[in-house]
């Protein structure tokens, strides 16, 4: 399946990636090549095959409902680009 520039832009927007006008064709071509590789899957019939989400045939373990973590806000916020008054700051969200 060939991917055109506008489709690439649409996906890039979903993934919050900026692709410059100059790169868009190149990116579209590369992805089209990859999709061609992927499309080899379509060569076989899998109608009756159950999808496998996970290599393990196991079930979810449950966690006891107890508090195991304490407050390390100040330590964690040293990792952040911008904080104030204990809040993480981002450019104003316009709703």
């Amino acid at each position: 399946m060939a991917l055109d520039k506008s489709e690439v832009e649409k996906i890039a927007q979903l993934a919050r990636l900026h692709i410059s006008e100059a790169d868009a064709d190149e990116v579209a071509n590369r992805i089209t090549d990859i999709l061609a590789l992927i499309d080899q899957m379509q060569s076989i019939d899998t109608e009756s095959v159950e999808p496998m989400a996970h290599p393990l045939d196991a079930v979810q373990r449950l966690r006891v409902d107890e508090i195991t973590e304490s407050d390390h806000r100040d330590e964690f916020q040293t990792l952040a680009p911008e904080t104030q008054d204990g809040l993480y700051l981002v450019p104003k969200v316009i709703e």
Binding site: D65, E66, I67, E69, R73, F76, G86, Y88
Partner: peptide, 24 residues
């Protein structure tokens, strides 16, 4: 109204200081 969060052992109480109930 669990004591801890859905997928982590962080407290889940209303009205705490900002980001004091936010762990790794």
């Amino acid at each position: 109204s669990t004591k801890s969060k859905l997928f982590s052992g962080t407290a889940s109480e209303f009205g705490a200081e900002p980001n004091t109930q936010a762990n790794i």
